[in-house]
């Protein structure tokens, strides 16, 4: 009895939000207040509806945060999500009967990208950001060669329920998927042995290796998970748009980095804050819709993207220095 109480306390201790997550949450609340002033109304339903649309970015950001935990950067998530979009539309071909086939082929392609990234980094010892940059170039090229520049197929209307539909009219399905991804990755990293090994390999690869952890294998697994997250993000995005288009997901690469650093991700590795980076993704999404509300040109989106990265990292560094 005593031990079960103790372990419950231990679990709660681990789930306590970090200061970075709380700060991100505070920023989100401030942002919602601004949105309220700007648009005149903010309801719970409206926030959930925004979360529904932010879900692709949120899930992709979770994968990016996992790679950041490993002390690396994945610059191929945008291209991977775009690949998922094209492959899903081609394999679905607008027919709901193909669902099992379409989803397995799409997720299989995503996993392959992750394996390729992981092997480039581990077996060939290429720095991760360059390896993933090369992968994204190859993916974009392959997509263009295979489709000839005009992708075929479409997503059947029935499948689009996963982003349009609400569970019991209360919670959008895509938000449920997002929450499940947060819970799954939090459990993996903080409550299972493989996850702890990954965390240690990310925090200090040499120490991990000296403790008998196959750091290389952990890196490959993290890249597979990141590419799968990008693929799921691409699938959700496809369900929103209903069709395939080239380059549709390119902005997700830098967006996911920006969202992760708002949520407290650090570049040294060894930190994984699933809730924090998800709030980061939501903040980025709200900022982008705020730009839309005040009708600034779409180009400002990029300026905000870069500005947020600089600001978030500058604040994090200044705080670290003063601590």
């Amino acid at each position: 009895m005593q031990t079960s109480v103790q372990s419950a306390v231990l679990v709660l201790e681990k789930l306590r939000p970090s200061p970075a997550t709380l700060r991100a949450f505070g920023l989100l609340v401030v942002l919602l207040c601004v949105l309220f002033v700007a648009s005149g109304q903010v309801s719970g339903h409206q926030i959930l509806d925004n979360m529904r649309q932010a879900a692709p970015l949120g899930i992709i950001t979770l994968g990016q945060a996992l790679i950041l935990m490993m002390g690396r950067l994945d610059l191929s998530v945008g291209a991977t999500a775009g690949l998922a979009n094209v492959v899903l539309a081609m394999t679905f071909a607008g027919n709901m009967d193909n669902m099992a086939y379409a989803l397995s082929v799409t997720l299989g392609c995503g996993a392959l990208v992750g394996v390729a990234n992981g092997l480039l980094v581990v077996a060939l010892r290429i720095p991760a950001f360059l390896a993933t940059l090369a992968t994204s170039l190859v993916l974009t090229g392959t997509t263009l060669v295979v489709t000839g520049g005009s992708p075929r197929g479409s997503i059947p209307a029935e499948f689009r329920v996963i982003t349009e539909g609400w569970f019991l009219g209360v919670l959008p399905y895509s938000v449920i998927l997002w929450l499940a991804a947060i819970a799954g990755l939090t459990t993996l990293v903080h409550f299972t042995m493989p996850g702890r090994r990954m965390l240690l390999a990310g925090a200090n690869a040499r120490a991990a290796r000296l403790n008998g952890i196959a750091a290389g294998r952990m890196i490959v697994i993290s890249f597979v998970l990141s590419s799968l997250a990008a693929t799921i993000g691409g699938i959700l995005l496809s369900a929103i748009t209903g069709m395939a288009s080239i380059g549709i997901a390119d902005a997700y690469t830098v967006d996911s980095i920006a969202a992760a650093v708002i949520g407290g991700a650090v570049f040294g590795g060894g930190v994984f804050l699933a809730a924090g980076v998800s709030i980061g993704a939501l903040i980025l999404f709200f900022v982008q819709s705020l730009l839309y509300v005040v009708s600034l040109p779409p180009a400002t989106r990029f300026i905000v993207q870069g500005g947020i990265i600089v600001l978030a990292l500058a604040l994090a560094n200044i705080r670290r220095k003063s601590d």
Binding site: A299, F302, I303, G306, G307, I309, V310, L313
Partner: peptide, 25 residues
């Protein structure tokens, strides 16, 4: 600001891209 050079140059890239698209959509 002691930001990682790789990430800092990515941020600059995003900002420059935005400015360019503002000047010449």
């Amino acid at each position: 600001l002691r930001i990682n050079p790789l990430v800092m140059s990515l941020a600059t890239a995003a900002i420059v891209k935005g400015v360019t698209l503002l000047l010449l959509p």
